[in-house]
Computed example of a mutant assay.
Amino acid sequence: MSTTEARGRNATGPVRSIFAGLMKCQHCDGTVTRVNKGDHVYLVCSAAHAKAGTHPYESVPYDQAVSTFKANLRKTLDTAPRGNDTADIDAEIEQLKVEIDAGEDAVNELLEMAISDKSTTARDRLLQYEQELEAVRDDLRSAVERREMLTGANVEKRLAAVEQALSAEPMNTEEANKALRGAVSKMVMRPQEGRLNIRWHHAEQIQETVFLTSRFDWDANQMEDEKQEQQ
């Protein structure tokens, strides 16, 4: 008998895994969920757990994954990438500002024309220009947010938040997950190699770190879990 604790976009229940919403399967890139099996808790690909048959069933003891991740946290954070060059985004932001200035001038001219001439055509064009201008403003806000995500100070702040949340005693799972979500785009578990790939929000390159300390323990748990699945 097992229960799966998935963390969907609209989930309202308590967070039970520090990896909720982040962990992905190396085979199908599907969601990895926390699964309860009596006294044991595992991380399992949702598709494999549903017996979709798309790839081998692999499970990782949740507590071991957490303890290993915490034990190697300092090294993981020390070697994490520190952000990308923002030159391209800076140029994009400047171009968007130029477009906004031009758009505001055009809107003001059309507004004066619509008022003075009472032109229906001018009003229609004014509405169109205002909508286009707002879209460019949204693009600017998004670009500024992306640049802030990449800047060194913000990267250090997010990494520090991860360390603080996962080093707390006792650790609050929900707070730890929140801190990881703020810094990490996704994690891909590779249990047979005992490795974990991390993609941080602020960098394109993948960081590889330790996921399991004992291959023997994983093999033993994997065999037991597969037996339970077959029953």
Results as ranks from 00 to 15, higher is better:
Gln230Cys: 03
Gln128Trp: 06
Gly194Lys: 10
Val162Phe: 01
Gln128Ser: 12
Leu159Gly: 06
Ser185Gly: 08
Asn172Thr: 08
Leu166Asn: 01
Lys37Gln: 14
Thr213Ser: 14
Ile198Met: 01
Gly152Glu: 15
Arg82Ile: 00
Ala203Tyr: 01
Ser59Pro: 05
Leu133Arg: 09
Ser116Glu: 15
Asn72Thr: 11
Arg125Ser: 13
Arg16Pro: 00
Ala203Ser: 15
Ile93Thr: 05
Leu22Ile: 08
Ser185Arg: 13
Gln131Leu: 12
Glu175Ile: 10
Gln222Arg: 09
Glu208Arg: 14
Glu226Cys: 03
Gly152Gln: 13
Ala91Met: 08
Met149Pro: 03
Ser185Trp: 02
Tyr129Pro: 02
Glu175Arg: 14
Gln131Thr: 15
Arg158Ile: 03
Glu208His: 11
Asn36Trp: 08
Glu174Asp: 09
Thr209Ser: 08
Asp29Ser: 15
Val44Asp: 07
Ile93Ala: 07
Gln228Thr: 13
Asn177Lys: 02
Val15Glu: 04
Ile93Tyr: 01
Glu99Asp: 14
Ala80Leu: 02
Leu110Lys: 05
Arg74Asn: 05
Val162Ala: 01
Thr173Gln: 05
Ala168Phe: 09
Gly53Leu: 01
Gln231Asp: 13
Leu110Glu: 06
Gly83Ile: 07
Leu180Asp: 04
Gly53Ile: 02
Ile93Phe: 03
Asn10Val: 08
Thr86Gln: 12
Asn108Ser: 15
Lys75Thr: 11
Val35Gly: 02
Ser2Asp: 08
Ala11Gln: 09
Gln64Phe: 05
Leu73Met: 08
Met113Pro: 00
Arg147Cys: 10
Pro170Val: 06
Glu204Ser: 13
Asn154Ile: 03
Thr76His: 03
Ala47Val: 13
Val144Gln: 09
Glu58Ser: 05
Leu22Gly: 09
Thr3Asn: 12
Asp63Thr: 07
Met187Ala: 02
Asn84Ala: 15
Thr31Ile: 11
Val188Cys: 02
Thr79His: 11
Pro56Asp: 00
Cys45Val: 05
Leu196His: 02
Arg74Ile: 09
Glu134Ala: 13
Gly53Asp: 02
Met171Cys: 09
Phe216Lys: 12
Glu130Ile: 08
